[in-house]
Design a binder for these strands. Sequence first.
RNA 1: GCAGUGAGCCGGGUAAUCGCUGCCGCCGGUAACCCCGCCGUAGCUCGCGAUCGAAAGGUCGAGAGCGAAGGCGGGCAGUGCCGGCGGGAGAGGAAAGUCCGAACUCCACAGGGCAGUGCGCCGGGUAAUUCCCGGGCGGGGCGACCCGACGGACAGUGGCACAGAAAAUAUACCGCUAGCCGUGGGUCGGGUGAUUGGGGAGGAGUGGCGGGGCAGGCGCCCCGGCACUCCCCAUAAGUCGGCGGGUAAUCCCAGCGACGGCCGCGCGAAGCGCGGUCGUCAGGGGCCGCCUCAAUCACCCGGCCCAUGGCGAGUAAGGGUGAAAUGGUGGGGUAAGAGCCCACCGCGCGCUUGGUAACAAGCGUGGCAGGCCAAACCCCGCACGGAGCAAGACCAAAUAGGGAAGCGAACGAUGGCGGCCCGCCUAAAGCUUCCGGGUAGGUUGCUCGAUCCCGUCAGCAAUGCCGGGGCUAGAGGAAUGAUUACCCUCGCGGCGCUCGCAAGGGCGGCGCGGGACAGAAUUCGGCUUAUAGGCUCACUGCGGCA
Length: 81
Amino acid sequence: MTMFTRNREEGPARLGIAATRKMGAAVERNRAKRLTRELFRHHKPEGPVDVVVVPRREMLDAPYASLELEFRALLARSKSR
RNA sequence: GCAGUGAGCCGGGUAAUCGCUGCCGCCGGUAACCCCGCCGUAGCUCGCGAUCGAAAGGUCGAGAGCGAAGGCGGGCAGUGCCGGCGGGAGAGGAAAGUCCGAACUCCACAGGGCAGUGCGCCGGGUAAUUCCCGGGCGGGGCGACCCGACGGACAGUGGCACAGAAAAUAUACCGCUAGCCGUGGGUCGGGUGAUUGGGGAGGAGUGGCGGGGCAGGCGCCCCGGCACUCCCCAUAAGUCGGCGGGUAAUCCCAGCGACGGCCGCGCGAAGCGCGGUCGUCAGGGGCCGCCUCAAUCACCCGGCCCAUGGCGAGUAAGGGUGAAAUGGUGGGGUAAGAGCCCACCGCGCGCUUGGUAACAAGCGUGGCAGGCCAAACCCCGCACGGAGCAAGACCAAAUAGGGAAGCGAACGAUGGCGGCCCGCCUAAAGCUUCCGGGUAGGUUGCUCGAUCCCGUCAGCAAUGCCGGGGCUAGAGGAAUGAUUACCCUCGCGGCGCUCGCAAGGGCGGCGCGGGACAGAAUUCGGCUUAUAGGCUCACUGCGGCA
């Protein structure tokens, strides 16, 4: 997946998902969004930050544990900047 | 058991933990626009008092009333919203493609036509349909059954790859056919001319002939030739017959024969056949000559046949190729052929009968005409107003703009007329209040409906009536999920048990991998397309067993 982040003045952390039609049909886009939401729910970042995730096709076949690893790594990288 | 046909159904299950979106209940917190009441600043109005002034009027003071802004209280409302707890619900058979038909909403609308789009056998079902059911017709399949946009191809235009003589025009080409004019060949007939052998082998007996021997009177013996059979060489070819002369045979033609008489039998007459017996058997060939005929060759003439060239006709039978070829089969007919004629089939028309109808059957009659494609343009008939829930309705910030009233401003800003003044005409900017359109946003439409399930009845069926029961997603960048465990199921691998001669099958448990197509968006009825795996019922064909 691809991740963009941006800090805000105040408020909770927010999630945006950009699953385009290039990704696949409606079923596949829906599943990608659900998986992304689930990741965000389990690993919600601290503080007022906006996160935008662009899922890729490979997400659909990947096991959930590896997705968790990737999501947390991306979050950590964006936080250290 | 194998192979198939039709109809219907399912579309992984259970549990735990953590989540999402509506709904219901309880608890806690808590609004706003707006409305009503009260207070009240600026301001306005009213009179009173004081003071200045000749007056008009000015200034000051306190009071009363009205009252922007603002404040307080109440209603709105413990509503909505926020938070917590609990309960309950939450994707499909196609939610898909958005291809038809409707409901619903808004817009338009006197009538008619053109264009455009769709449809096109008959009857029924339905809110409606291009959908469904039943039937007809055509096609496919051994069959169950399946497929068909199924009006018109003399209204017109256009297309038909490759192959094929030709793809739409009854023509050209090939071919077939009689005629005429030629060429070549065959055959038949006629005419003229010429020509018509040689050798070998076998060969009973007699005779003659030729030669030789013995004998010397008659004669006897041997060899050769001829008749006959066969072969070889040469050749264009070598034969039937007649006449005359010669003339030997017991030889050849010639014999189990032919003809005739009589007798007998089949069988009764004629006749025929069989048997017996008797009689007759010419003539010819040989050696020589001649003639005709024949044969062969060459040349000439004619007839017929075959092949072929040309000419102008007849013909559409044939021309095998193609997805498709000018009605099919048989017979007659013809120079050859042809619906040219006839029979049957096919086709058109008419009548009758059956059927609601499409249509079918029967009878009669006509002529054989015009290939295929209209989901090519097109013609005929019928139907159709447009846009769509982002429809439409309601509430309504901020900003910008619009309208009205007041102040601005009647002691005339600004501008115009004008060189300037006077004069006349001209009412803007700005401010305040109110109104309307309208964007973001919110609410609604929005899920009780041609609804779902069960059953009775009517109907072949599609479907409908009636009765009973149920409430089953309503989101809005869009929820309906994530993870784990167990089970189910499919494939592969190897293991154990078991059946079998074997190939292989069954059962159990293990490991690995997989479980399709696909995500509601106003709602229904259809169609089309995608779909792993599985289930049920009915039916068909073939095979096996009893």
